[in-house]
Protein backbone atom coordinates (compact mmCIF):
# COMPACT_ATOMS: atom_id res chain seq x y z
CA UNK A 1 0.00 0.00 0.00
CA UNK A 2 2.71 2.42 -0.90
CA UNK A 3 1.31 5.74 -2.06
CA UNK A 4 2.61 7.47 -5.16
CA UNK A 5 5.58 9.75 -4.76
CA UNK A 6 4.80 13.38 -4.04
CA UNK A 7 8.31 14.76 -3.71
CA UNK A 8 11.35 13.22 -5.36
CA UNK A 9 14.69 14.74 -4.54
CA UNK A 10 17.50 13.54 -6.79
CA UNK A 11 21.18 14.20 -6.23
CA UNK A 12 20.54 17.53 -4.53
CA UNK A 13 23.71 19.57 -4.09
CA UNK A 14 23.79 22.94 -2.40
CA UNK A 15 26.98 24.95 -2.31
CA UNK A 16 27.87 28.25 -0.72
CA UNK A 17 30.58 30.71 -1.56
CA UNK A 18 32.38 31.54 1.66
CA UNK A 19 35.43 33.61 2.51
CA UNK A 20 37.45 30.44 2.84
CA UNK A 21 36.30 29.12 -0.53
CA UNK A 22 33.27 27.21 -1.75
CA UNK A 23 31.63 24.59 0.47
CA UNK A 24 29.07 21.97 -0.45
CA UNK A 25 26.74 21.79 2.55
CA UNK A 26 24.38 19.29 0.94
CA UNK A 27 26.18 16.84 -1.27
CA UNK A 28 24.11 14.54 -3.45
CA UNK A 29 21.04 13.96 -1.30
CA UNK A 30 18.30 11.70 -2.64
CA UNK A 31 14.93 10.90 -1.08
CA UNK A 32 11.27 10.44 -1.85
CA UNK A 33 8.23 11.49 0.14
CA UNK A 34 4.97 9.74 -0.63
CA UNK A 35 1.49 11.17 -0.21
CA UNK A 36 0.42 11.24 3.43
CA UNK A 37 3.82 10.03 4.59
CA UNK A 38 6.09 11.56 7.22
CA UNK A 39 9.76 11.45 6.37
CA UNK A 40 12.21 12.24 9.15
CA UNK A 41 15.59 13.84 8.56
CA UNK A 42 17.94 13.31 11.50
CA UNK A 43 21.56 14.07 12.18
CA UNK A 44 23.65 16.25 14.39
CA UNK A 45 24.13 19.97 14.28
CA UNK A 46 25.58 21.19 10.99
CA UNK A 47 24.96 18.02 8.96
CA UNK A 48 22.83 19.89 6.44
CA UNK A 49 19.24 19.29 7.52
CA UNK A 50 18.14 22.91 7.33
CA UNK A 51 20.06 23.59 4.14
CA UNK A 52 18.23 20.62 2.58
CA UNK A 53 14.89 22.08 3.65
CA UNK A 54 15.78 25.60 2.54
CA UNK A 55 16.94 24.23 -0.80
CA UNK A 56 13.64 22.44 -1.41
CA UNK A 57 11.82 25.69 -0.61
CA UNK A 58 14.47 27.66 -2.52
CA UNK A 59 14.79 30.10 0.29
CA UNK A 60 18.55 30.55 0.17
CA UNK A 61 20.06 33.71 -1.15
CA UNK A 62 20.98 32.70 -4.68
CA UNK A 63 23.77 35.28 -4.76
CA UNK A 64 26.02 32.97 -2.79
CA UNK A 65 24.13 29.69 -2.78
CA UNK A 66 23.80 27.44 -5.81
CA UNK A 67 21.80 24.29 -6.34
CA UNK A 68 22.10 21.29 -8.59
CA UNK A 69 20.14 18.09 -8.95
CA UNK A 70 16.37 18.11 -8.99
CA UNK A 71 13.48 18.54 -6.56
CA UNK A 72 10.35 17.25 -8.23
CA UNK A 73 7.03 17.99 -6.61
CA UNK A 74 4.23 16.20 -8.43
CA UNK A 75 6.56 15.72 -11.35
CA UNK A 76 7.55 19.39 -11.66
CA UNK A 77 11.16 20.38 -10.93
CA UNK A 78 11.12 23.20 -8.40
CA UNK A 79 14.78 24.02 -8.93
CA UNK A 80 14.14 25.09 -12.52
CA UNK A 81 10.97 27.08 -11.89
CA UNK A 82 11.11 30.83 -12.43
CA UNK A 83 10.96 32.69 -9.11
CA UNK A 84 7.40 33.95 -9.75
CA UNK A 85 6.09 30.40 -10.09
CA UNK A 86 8.16 29.23 -7.17
CA UNK A 87 6.56 31.94 -5.08
CA UNK A 88 3.14 30.62 -6.05
CA UNK A 89 4.15 27.07 -5.16
CA UNK A 90 5.36 28.13 -1.71
CA UNK A 91 2.45 28.08 0.64
CA UNK A 92 -0.02 26.48 -1.74
CA UNK A 93 1.85 23.33 -2.74
CA UNK A 94 4.50 23.14 -0.09
CA UNK A 95 4.96 25.11 3.10
CA UNK A 96 7.59 25.26 5.77
CA UNK A 97 7.87 25.99 9.45
CA UNK A 98 11.44 27.23 9.66
CA UNK A 99 13.83 26.31 12.47
CA UNK A 100 13.88 29.76 14.05
CA UNK A 101 10.30 30.58 13.15
CA UNK A 102 9.14 31.14 16.71
CA UNK A 103 11.05 34.37 16.61
CA UNK A 104 9.95 35.11 13.05
CA UNK A 105 6.52 36.36 14.08
CA UNK A 106 6.76 40.11 13.80
CA UNK A 107 6.52 41.63 17.28
CA UNK A 108 4.87 44.86 16.12
CA UNK A 109 1.89 43.32 14.31
CA UNK A 110 -1.05 41.47 15.80
CA UNK A 111 -1.48 37.76 15.25
CA UNK A 112 -4.55 38.60 13.15
CA UNK A 113 -2.51 40.83 10.79
CA UNK A 114 0.04 38.12 10.27
CA UNK A 115 -2.29 35.17 9.77
CA UNK A 116 -4.44 37.18 7.34
CA UNK A 117 -1.36 38.28 5.45
CA UNK A 118 -0.17 34.69 5.16
CA UNK A 119 -3.55 33.81 3.68
CA UNK A 120 -3.86 36.66 1.22
CA UNK A 121 -0.33 36.24 -0.12
CA UNK A 122 -1.42 32.99 -1.70
CA UNK A 123 -5.13 33.38 -2.20
CA UNK A 124 -7.22 36.16 -3.62
CA UNK A 125 -10.04 36.81 -1.19
CA UNK A 126 -11.74 39.62 0.66
CA UNK A 127 -10.47 40.68 4.07
CA UNK A 128 -13.70 39.37 5.55
CA UNK A 129 -13.27 35.92 4.05
CA UNK A 130 -9.62 35.90 5.03
CA UNK A 131 -10.59 36.75 8.60
CA UNK A 132 -13.08 33.89 8.65
CA UNK A 133 -10.51 31.49 7.23
CA UNK A 134 -7.96 32.68 9.80
CA UNK A 135 -10.35 31.91 12.64
CA UNK A 136 -11.07 28.46 11.30
CA UNK A 137 -7.35 27.76 10.86
CA UNK A 138 -6.66 28.78 14.45
CA UNK A 139 -9.51 26.52 15.54
CA UNK A 140 -8.05 23.65 13.54
CA UNK A 141 -4.69 24.07 15.20
CA UNK A 142 -6.23 24.08 18.66
CA UNK A 143 -5.75 27.76 19.52
CA UNK A 144 -8.26 28.58 22.26
CA UNK A 145 -10.34 31.78 21.93
CA UNK A 146 -9.21 32.46 18.36
CA UNK A 147 -11.05 35.81 18.04
CA UNK A 148 -9.23 37.15 21.05
CA UNK A 149 -5.85 35.78 19.89
CA UNK A 150 -6.23 37.62 16.60
CA UNK A 151 -6.01 40.90 18.48
CA UNK A 152 -2.94 39.91 20.53
CA UNK A 153 0.74 40.44 19.88
CA UNK A 154 3.28 37.59 19.69
CA UNK A 155 4.92 38.37 23.03
CA UNK A 156 1.59 37.92 24.79
CA UNK A 157 1.46 34.26 23.81
CA UNK A 158 3.28 31.20 25.12
CA UNK A 159 5.78 29.36 22.92
CA UNK A 160 3.32 26.53 22.34
CA UNK A 161 0.60 28.93 21.16
CA UNK A 162 3.01 30.75 18.88
CA UNK A 163 3.99 27.45 17.31
CA UNK A 164 0.30 26.58 16.76
CA UNK A 165 -0.18 29.90 15.03
CA UNK A 166 2.81 29.28 12.78
CA UNK A 167 1.39 25.89 11.88
CA UNK A 168 -1.94 27.56 11.10
CA UNK A 169 -0.15 30.02 8.82
CA UNK A 170 1.71 27.20 7.07
CA UNK A 171 -1.55 25.35 6.48
CA UNK A 172 -3.38 28.38 5.11
CA UNK A 173 -2.83 27.43 1.46
CA UNK A 174 -3.66 23.74 1.95
CA UNK A 175 -0.17 22.54 1.05
CA UNK A 176 0.38 18.96 -0.05
CA UNK A 177 3.71 18.95 1.74
CA UNK A 178 4.66 20.49 5.06
CA UNK A 179 8.32 20.83 5.97
CA UNK A 180 8.82 21.30 9.69
CA UNK A 181 12.38 22.14 10.75
CA UNK A 182 12.85 21.36 14.46
CA UNK A 183 9.25 22.40 15.22
CA UNK A 184 9.43 21.46 18.90
CA UNK A 185 13.07 21.92 19.84
CA UNK A 186 12.49 25.21 21.65
CA UNK A 187 9.48 23.87 23.55
CA UNK A 188 9.08 22.15 26.90
CA UNK A 189 8.46 18.44 26.85
CA UNK A 190 4.74 18.64 27.64
CA UNK A 191 4.19 21.34 25.01
CA UNK A 192 6.26 19.35 22.54
CA UNK A 193 3.95 16.36 23.05
CA UNK A 194 0.91 18.55 22.34
CA UNK A 195 2.39 20.02 19.17
CA UNK A 196 3.44 16.60 17.88
CA UNK A 197 -0.08 15.30 18.54
CA UNK A 198 -1.47 18.27 16.64
CA UNK A 199 0.74 17.71 13.58
CA UNK A 200 -0.20 14.05 13.60
CA UNK A 201 -3.94 14.86 13.79
CA UNK A 202 -3.70 17.43 11.01
CA UNK A 203 -1.99 14.92 8.79
CA UNK A 204 -4.44 12.13 9.38
CA UNK A 205 -7.37 14.42 8.54
CA UNK A 206 -5.87 15.24 5.14
CA UNK A 207 -3.42 13.51 2.86
CA UNK A 208 -0.72 16.06 3.58
CA UNK A 209 2.77 14.62 3.61
CA UNK A 210 5.48 16.02 5.82
CA UNK A 211 9.20 16.23 6.18
CA UNK A 212 10.11 16.45 9.83
CA UNK A 213 13.60 17.65 10.63
CA UNK A 214 14.93 16.91 14.08
CA UNK A 215 18.04 15.95 15.99
CA UNK A 216 15.85 14.06 18.47
CA UNK A 217 15.44 10.36 17.75
CA UNK A 218 12.54 10.22 20.22
CA UNK A 219 10.62 12.63 18.02
CA UNK A 220 11.45 10.42 15.05
CA UNK A 221 10.12 7.35 16.88
CA UNK A 222 6.88 9.19 17.66
CA UNK A 223 6.22 10.74 14.29
CA UNK A 224 7.95 9.28 11.27
CA UNK A 225 7.23 6.55 8.74
CA UNK A 226 10.60 6.67 7.04
CA UNK A 227 13.87 8.23 8.08
CA UNK A 228 17.02 9.47 6.46
CA UNK A 229 20.14 9.94 8.57
CA UNK A 230 22.54 12.66 7.46
CA UNK A 231 26.22 13.10 8.20
CA UNK A 232 28.34 15.95 6.88
CA UNK A 233 26.03 16.82 4.00
CA UNK A 234 25.23 13.31 2.87
CA UNK A 235 22.60 10.67 3.51
CA UNK A 236 24.32 7.73 5.23
CA UNK A 237 21.24 5.59 5.81
CA UNK A 238 17.59 5.44 4.82
CA UNK A 239 15.04 3.03 6.24
CA UNK A 240 11.52 2.57 7.53
CA UNK A 241 11.34 3.85 11.05
CA UNK A 242 10.98 0.42 12.69
CA UNK A 243 13.82 -1.00 10.64
CA UNK A 244 16.05 1.90 11.57
CA UNK A 245 15.51 1.39 15.30
CA UNK A 246 15.51 -2.42 15.07
CA UNK A 247 18.55 -2.86 12.89
CA UNK A 248 20.51 0.30 12.22
CA UNK A 249 23.17 -0.58 9.68
CA UNK A 250 25.48 2.39 9.33
CA UNK A 251 28.06 2.69 12.14
CA UNK A 252 27.05 6.32 12.62
CA UNK A 253 23.36 5.47 13.03
CA UNK A 254 24.25 2.74 15.49
CA UNK A 255 26.48 5.09 17.42
CA UNK A 256 23.81 7.75 17.53
CA UNK A 257 21.12 5.38 18.80
CA UNK A 258 23.44 4.00 21.46
CA UNK A 259 24.42 7.49 22.67
CA UNK A 260 20.96 8.47 23.88
CA UNK A 261 20.12 7.86 27.50
CA UNK A 262 16.77 6.12 27.09
CA UNK A 263 13.95 6.64 29.48
CA UNK A 264 13.73 2.86 29.97
CA UNK A 265 17.41 2.12 29.38
CA UNK A 266 19.91 0.38 31.62
CA UNK A 267 21.30 3.09 33.89
CA UNK A 268 24.27 1.07 35.05
CA UNK A 269 25.83 1.01 31.58
CA UNK A 270 27.95 3.89 30.35
CA UNK A 271 26.55 5.62 27.28
CA UNK A 272 28.09 5.10 23.91
CA UNK A 273 30.47 7.79 22.77
CA UNK A 274 31.32 8.58 19.16
CA UNK A 275 34.94 9.58 19.40
CA UNK A 276 36.32 12.66 17.68
CA UNK A 277 34.36 15.34 15.94
CA UNK A 278 32.66 16.06 12.64
CA UNK A 279 35.17 17.39 10.07
CA UNK A 280 34.44 20.85 8.69
CA UNK A 281 33.07 21.40 5.21
CA UNK A 282 36.42 22.91 4.27
CA UNK A 283 38.29 19.66 4.76
CA UNK A 284 35.93 16.92 3.75
CA UNK A 285 37.79 13.57 3.81
CA UNK A 286 38.38 11.94 0.44
CA UNK A 287 37.25 8.52 1.60
CA UNK A 288 34.31 7.77 3.85
CA UNK A 289 33.36 10.96 5.68
CA UNK A 290 32.88 9.03 8.92
CA UNK A 291 36.15 7.07 8.72
CA UNK A 292 38.06 9.11 11.32
CA UNK A 293 35.46 8.30 13.96
CA UNK A 294 34.46 4.82 12.87
CA UNK A 295 35.38 1.68 14.83
CA UNK A 296 35.10 -0.43 11.69
CA UNK A 297 37.18 1.69 9.32
CA UNK A 298 39.53 -0.16 6.97
CA UNK A 299 42.10 1.15 4.47
CA UNK A 300 39.50 1.02 1.75
CA UNK A 301 37.28 3.32 3.81
CA UNK A 302 40.00 5.94 4.09
CA UNK A 303 40.85 5.74 0.40
CA UNK A 304 37.55 5.80 -1.37
CA UNK A 305 34.11 7.10 -0.59
CA UNK A 306 31.35 4.50 -0.31
CA UNK A 307 28.22 5.01 -2.42
CA UNK A 308 24.70 5.08 -0.98
CA UNK A 309 23.81 1.51 -1.74
CA UNK A 310 20.38 -0.15 -1.99
CA UNK A 311 20.36 -3.07 0.38
CA UNK A 312 17.98 -5.79 1.38
CA UNK A 313 18.41 -7.43 4.71
CA UNK A 314 16.48 -10.62 4.41
CA UNK A 315 16.86 -11.95 7.91
CA UNK A 316 16.53 -8.76 9.86
CA UNK A 317 13.78 -7.36 7.70
CA UNK A 318 11.65 -10.43 8.06
CA UNK A 319 11.93 -10.09 11.80
CA UNK A 320 10.92 -6.48 11.64
CA UNK A 321 8.22 -7.24 9.08
CA UNK A 322 9.83 -4.75 6.76
CA UNK A 323 9.81 -5.26 3.05
CA UNK A 324 10.67 -1.81 1.82
CA UNK A 325 14.09 -1.09 0.44
CA UNK A 326 16.69 0.64 2.52
CA UNK A 327 19.93 2.35 1.76
CA UNK A 328 23.31 2.42 3.47
CA UNK A 329 26.48 4.34 2.68
CA UNK A 330 29.16 2.05 4.07
CA UNK A 331 31.66 -0.39 2.60
CA UNK A 332 31.50 -2.76 5.53
CA UNK A 333 27.89 -2.84 6.71
CA UNK A 334 27.61 -6.57 5.92
CA UNK A 335 30.46 -7.43 8.25
CA UNK A 336 29.52 -5.43 11.29
CA UNK A 337 28.07 -7.63 14.01
CA UNK A 338 24.45 -6.79 14.74
CA UNK A 339 24.68 -6.52 18.50
CA UNK A 340 26.82 -3.42 18.39
CA UNK A 341 23.84 -1.21 19.03
CA UNK A 342 22.29 -0.99 22.44
CA UNK A 343 18.80 -0.53 21.08
CA UNK A 344 18.85 -3.68 19.00
CA UNK A 345 18.43 -6.20 21.76
CA UNK A 346 15.45 -4.42 23.21
CA UNK A 347 13.69 -4.01 19.91
CA UNK A 348 13.92 -7.66 18.91
CA UNK A 349 12.81 -8.84 22.35
Amino acid sequence: MTNPALLTVTDLKTSFLTERGPVTAVDGVPFTVRRGETLGIVGESGCGKSVTADSIMRLLDEKDASYSGSVELNGRDLLSLPETEMRRARGSELAMIAQDSMSSLNPVFTIGNQVIEAITVHQKMSQKDAYRLAISLLERTGVPEPEHRMTQYPHELSGGLRQRILIAMALSGNPKLLIADEPTTALDVTTQAQILTLIRALQSSSDMASVLITHDLGVVAEMCDRVIVMYLGQVVEEADVDALFDSPQHPYTRGLLASIPEIDGDRSQPLNVIAGRVPTLHDVPTGCRFAERCDFATDKCRDSAPPLEDVTLETVDMLAGDATPRKVRCWNWRHIPMNTSATTAKAIR
Binding site: T190, Q192, A221, E222
Partner: peptide
Protein backbone atom coordinates in the same frame (compact mmCIF):
# COMPACT_ATOMS: atom_id res chain seq x y z
CA UNK B 1 15.27 7.86 40.75
CA UNK B 2 13.82 4.43 40.11
CA UNK B 3 10.84 5.09 42.36
CA UNK B 4 10.04 8.42 40.74
CA UNK B 5 10.14 6.87 37.29
CA UNK B 6 8.36 3.62 38.06
CA UNK B 7 5.80 4.95 40.49
CA UNK B 8 5.30 8.70 40.18
CA UNK B 9 2.94 10.06 42.81
CA UNK B 10 2.30 13.62 41.77
CA UNK B 11 0.06 14.29 38.74
CA UNK B 12 2.61 16.74 37.35
CA UNK B 13 5.37 14.12 37.46
CA UNK B 14 3.08 11.74 35.60
CA UNK B 15 2.30 14.41 33.05
CA UNK B 16 6.02 15.01 32.47
CA UNK B 17 6.78 11.31 32.13
CA UNK B 18 3.90 10.79 29.70
CA UNK B 19 5.21 13.56 27.49
CA UNK B 20 8.62 12.00 26.93
CA UNK B 21 8.93 10.67 23.38
CA UNK B 22 9.15 6.90 23.17
CA UNK B 23 12.52 5.25 22.63
CA UNK B 24 11.20 3.00 19.88
CA UNK B 25 8.47 3.54 17.27
CA UNK B 26 6.74 0.36 18.39
CA UNK B 27 6.43 1.70 21.92
CA UNK B 28 5.11 4.98 20.52
Amino acid sequence: TDEIFSNPQHPYTRQLLDAIPASHPRLA
